[in-house]
Design a protein around this nucleic acid. Structure first.
Length: 739
DNA sequence: CAGCCTCGAGTTCC
DNA sequence: CTCGAGGCTG
C-alpha cells in the first residue's frame, strides 16, 4: 500500500468513526455494531502507528464531539466514600502502625489489633437499606457523588433485596467483581455474538454494572463482597471484625480470607499467605487491606482529606513487561511545564494494553533524580531502547528499567528541548526546579487551551456539556480564547445555536443545553472562581481558604494590589538570598542569609499598609510566601488582570458561608501548648478543626484561645500578656464537649 | 533546621 | 496515583 492510499483510507475511517461517535455518544443510537466499530478503530490506530504524521490530518476523532450523555442519575453519598493510602513494602506497614501508635499516644507494648482482608480488584458499590429493604445502590464516583445503579444492583445474586435484624438505615459498602471463570465464559460468548470483548475482569464488571438496560446486567455473572459501611442509624458492632461477621449473618458474602491479626508480624504473615494463594483464588486481587479493629480507635483516628488514617492497602508488587521505546513526545501543561511522554510499542501490563508512559521530566530521562542522585542504576533512556514498564499503583505506566545489552548502536542520548515545541518560546528551568517551563505564557496555544480546560474542569466552573474536548474545539476555531469568551459565546455568535448546530458533533438540543448550562454558572461560588483562574500554586484548597478569608472579589484583588510592593520586596529578598548562597559557596564561607535578605528588603519601599496586606495574605492557613507571590504576580500582570476583569463582568460571585458549625469554637483560632494528657496534639488539632476552629502554631494577637498543658512556657506568658483566654486541657474538653 | 504532611500539578486508560 | 514542593511542627 502506498502512503497516498493509506492516507485516503485513514481520512475515510476518520470521518466514519467521527460520525459513529456522534451517533453513539450524543444520540445514544449506535449505527454500527460494536464489533464493526472496534474493527474500524483498530485499523485507524494501526494506520496511525504506521504513519504518525497522519494525526495532523483531519479531525482527531477522539477529541471532538458533544459530550456523552450519562444515563444514570447522580446520588450524593451521605458519608463520603474514601480511598486508601498505600503500602508497598513490609517496612511501610511497620511505619503505618508506628504512626498510629504515636497519633493515639499508645506505647509500643499496648495492644493494637488489625483486620486483614484481600483487596478485591473490582468496583466499589454502596447499598442503602431502609427498614431492611434495599432502596438504593450507588457507585463510588468521585467519592462525594456517585451514579444511581439501583436497578442493576438488584439483579446481582450476592446482593440481598431484604435483610432482617439490621438497623433502620444501613448502608453496606463492598466490591462488585467477576470471577476469572465467569470472565472467560463471558468473553467467549461476547466474541461469538460479536459483542464487546473485555480486557480484564474488572473492566467486564464495570461495563456490566453500568448497563442502561438492567436486563443485560442480569445476564452478567457479577458478585459482591461486603466489607464496609456508610450511614447507619445504629452501631453495628464495636470492632471491624464483628461488623464483618454481622454482614455475614445478615446474608451478605464476606471474604473468607478476612482475618483478625494482633501483631504486625501476623499481618505480614497473612499478607504473604494471601499472596501465595493469589493465583488459585479465582478472582483478581491487588493487595491486602489492613484496618484498625477497634471502632472507637477508628473514630479517634479519623480522616485525612481523602483517606482514613486507620486503614492502609498493602499492594502486591507491580507486574512488569518489556517493550521498545518508539519515541518521546513533549506535552505542554497549563503552567507551561514540558512533560515528556514515552511512546511505546503496545504491551500488556497487568491486563491492560499500554502504549504511553510518563517520563516525568528531563532528569528522569537522563537517569538522575532531582537531587542529582542516580536512578535505574544511572541508566539514561534513549529512543529505540528496550524498557521495562510497570503501572505505578496499578494505574500510571512508568519506566522501571532499561536493557543496555539491547540498546541499538545508533541510539543517541535524548536531548531535552530548550524551546517550547508548541510556540517556540524559550523553555527555562529555574534553579532548584525539576521541570522546564515554556515562557510563552498565554501566547502559547498549548498553555492557553490547558488553562481553559482547567477553567471548565469539575472543581472549577464545571459547565455541563462543556468539557475539555469542547473547549479545545472552540479554542481551535478561535471562538474562545479566554474564560470571558465562554460567557459571550451566545451573544457574539448571536443565533449561536444556528451556527453551533452546523458544527460537527453538535445538534440543536446539545447547543441549547450548552447555553443554558453556561447561564447557570453566571452565579458562581467564589472558591470555584479563584480555583478556575489557574494561578500557579493556588489549587482547590488554597482557593477555598482564600475565598473564606476575603469573601469578595473586590477584597481579594484589593489586598493583592495593596500587598504588591511587599511581594516584590519578598522576591528581591529571595534573589538576594540566592546570590548570597552562590557567593558564599564560591568564597568558601558561610552564607549570611538574614543580612542579605534584610538589605534587599531595605532597598524596596514598602509602606506599612503594604506590609500589613502581605501579612494578612500569608496569615491564610497553608498560604506561604510562594503562593502569595504567585497570586500577586497574577493580579499584577496587566494581561491577566484584564482577562480577570473582563470575566468578572459576566459573573455574580457567591461569597462562601463560613463553616458556622453550631460549636462554641467555630471560627476561633486556637493554639495548643505544653503537654496534652488526654489526647495527642494531632488528635486535638483534628477535633478542633472539625468543630470549625482554626489551629495555629504560635500565639499572636489573632489567637482566641490558648490551651495550655503542663510545661507550657513562653506561649502561655505571651498569651497572658495579650489577654488571651487560657484554658487547661480539661476546661477545653468541657468547652467542646467530651466525645 | 529537618523531617512530616498536605496540596498542587501532571499523567494513563477505560 | 505519584512526585515534588511548600508550609508547618517539633
Amino acid at each position: 500500500m502506498t502512503e497516498a492510499e493509506a492516507r485516503a483510507e485513514f481520512q475515510d475511517l476518520d470521518a466514519r468513526i467521527a460520525a459513529a461517535d456522534i451517533a453513539y455518544h450524543r444520540d445514544d443510537a449506535p449505527e454500527l455494531s460494536d464489533a464493526d466499530y472496534d474493527r474500524m478503530k483498530r485499523r485507524y490506530l494501526a494506520l496511525l502507528e504506521a504513519y504518525p504524521g497522519f494525526s495532523e490530518l483531519g479531525q482527531r476523532v477522539d477529541t471532538v464531539g458533544a459530550p456523552a450523555a450519562s444515563g444514570f442519575g447522580k446520588i450524593a453519598h451521605s458519608v463520603r466514600m474514601m480511598s486508601l493510602s498505600n503500602a508497598f513494602e513490609d517496612q511501610d506497614v511497620v511505619e503505618f502502625a508506628g504512626g498510629l501508635r504515636r497519633y493515639l499516644g499508645l506505647g509500643t507494648e499496648a495492644p493494637l489489633a488489625f483486620t486483614a482482608e484481600p483487596k478485591i480488584d473490582g468496583l466499589s458499590l454502596a447499598l442503602r437499606y431502609e427498614q431492611g429493604r434495599l432502596v438504593q445502590a450507588a457507585t463510588r464516583g468521585d467519592g462525594a457523588v456517585g451514579e444511581n445503579v439501583t436497578e442493576n444492583a438488584r439483579t446481582i445474586a450476592d446482593i440481598p433485596q431484604e435483610i432482617t435484624g439490621a438497623p433502620d438505615v444501613l448502608e453496606v459498602r463492598g466490591e462488585v467483581y467477576m470471577s476469572h471463570a465467569d470472565f472467560e465464559a463471558l468473553n467467549a460468548r461476547q466474541a461469538e455474538t460479536g459483542g464487546k470483548v473485555f480486557a480484564n475482569p474488572r473492566n467486564a464488571a464495570a461495563g456490566s454494572l453500568r448497563q442502561l438496560d438492567a436486563e443485560i446486567t442480569r445476564s452478567r455473572p457479577l458478585r459482591f463482597f461486603a466489607y464496609s459501611w456508610g450511614e447507619i442509624s445504629a452501631p453495628l458492632a464495636e470492632t471491624q471484625i464483628d461488623v464483618i461477621r454481622r454482614f455475614k449473618a445478615l446474608g451478605f458474602q464476606t471474604n473468607p480470607l478476612t482475618q483478625l491479626c494482633e501483631t504486625i508480624d501476623a499481618l505480614l504473615a497473612h499478607y504473604h499467605s494471601i499472596e501465595n494463594q493469589r493465583a488459585e483464588l479465582g478472582y483478581d486481587i491487588d493487595g491486602v487491606v489492613y484496618k484498625v479493629n477497634d471502632l472507637s480507635l477508628q473514630e479517634r483516628l479519623g480522616f485525612r482529606s481523602t483517606t482514613p488514617r486507620w486503614a492502609i492497602a498493602h499492594k502486591f508488587p507491580a507486574e512488569l513487561a518489556w517493550t521498545r521505546l518508539e519515541g518521546i513526545d513533549i506535552q505542554v501543561g497549563r503552567t507551561g511545564a514540558l512533560s515528556p511522554v514515552a511512546r511505546l510499542h503496545p504491551v500488556t501490563v497487568g491486563g491492560v494494553v499500554v502504549s504511553n508512559a510518563t517520563l516525568h521530566n528531563e532528569d528522569y530521562i537522563s537517569g538522575l533524580d532531582s537531587k542529582g542522585e542516580t536512578i535505574r542504576g544511572g541508566k539514561d533512556i534513549r529512543i529505540g531502547d528496550w524498557v521495562q514498564i510497570y503501572r505505578a499503583g496499578d494505574v500510571i505506566p512508568k519506566v522501571a528499567d532499561v536493557d543496555l545489552t539491547r540498546r541499538p548502536s545508533e541510539a543517541e542520548p535524548y536531548v531535552f528541548p530548550t524551546e517550547c515545541p508548541r510556540c517556540g518560546s524559550p523553555a527555562v528551568r529555574e534553579e532548584g526546579d525539576a521541570v522546564r517551563r515554556c515562557s510563552g505564557g498565554l501566547i502559547c496555544p498549548a498553555q492557553a487551551v490547558e488553562k481553559l480546560r482547567h477553567f471548565v474542569s469539575r472543581a472549577a466552573l464545571d459547565i455541563e456539556g462543556l468539557g475539555a474536548k469542547q473547549v479545545e474545539q472552540f479554542h481551535r476555531d478561535a471562538w474562545v480564547k479566554e474564560p470571558a469568551d465562554i460567557f459571550e459565546l451566545q451573544a457574539r455568535y448571536g443565533s449561536g445555536i444556528q451556527q453551533l448546530k452546523n458544527r460537527e458533533g453538535w445538534g440543536e438540543k446539545s447547543a441549547t443545553a450548552l447555553f443554558l448550562a453556561i447561564d447557570d454558572k453566571r452565579r458562581i461560588e467564589f472558591a470555584r472562581l479563584i480555583f478556575g483562574l489557574g494561578i500557579r500554586h493556588v489549587g482547590e484548597v488554597a482557593a477555598r481558604d482564600l475565598a473564606l478569608h476575603f469573601q469578595s472579589w473586590k477584597a481579594l484583588s484589593h489586598a493583592t494590589d495593596l500587598a504588591r510592593s511587599a511581594a516584590l520586596a519578598h522576591r528581591a529578598a529571595d534573589e538576594a538570598e540566592l546570590d548570597e548562597r552562590l557567593a558564599a559557596q564560591a568564597e568558601g564561607r558561610r552564607a549570611r542569609i538574614a543580612e542579605a535578605r534584610g538589605a534587599a528588603i531595605a532597598k524596596c519601599e514598602v509602606s506599612a499598609e503594604a506590609q500589613a496586606a502581605w501579612d494578612d495574605l500569608i496569615s491564610v492557613d497553608g498560604l506561604g510566601p510562594t503562593v502569595a507571590l504567585s497570586l500577586s504576580d497574577a493580579f499584577a500582570n496587566p494581561d491577566e488582570r484584564a482577562a480577570f476583569d473582563r470575566l468578572l463582568r459576566h459573573l455574580e460571585v457567591i461569597a462562601p458561608e463560613a463553616p458556622a458549625e453550631d460549636s462554641p469554637v467555630a471560627g476561633k483560632t486556637v493554639v495548643f501548648t505544653g503537654t496534652l494528657e488526654k489526647m495527642t496534639r494531632a488528635e486535638a488539632k483534628a477535633r478542633a478543626e472539625a468543630l470549625g476552629a482554626k489551629v495555629a502554631g504560635s500565639v499572636s494577637k489573632r489567637t482566641d484561645i490558648l490551651v495550655a498543658g503542663p510545661g507550657a512556657g513562653s506561649k502561655a506568658a505571651k498569651a497572658a500578656e495579650l489577654g488571651i483566654l487560657i484554658l487547661d486541657e480539661d476546661q477545653w474538653l468541657d468547652l467542646i464537649g467530651r466525645a
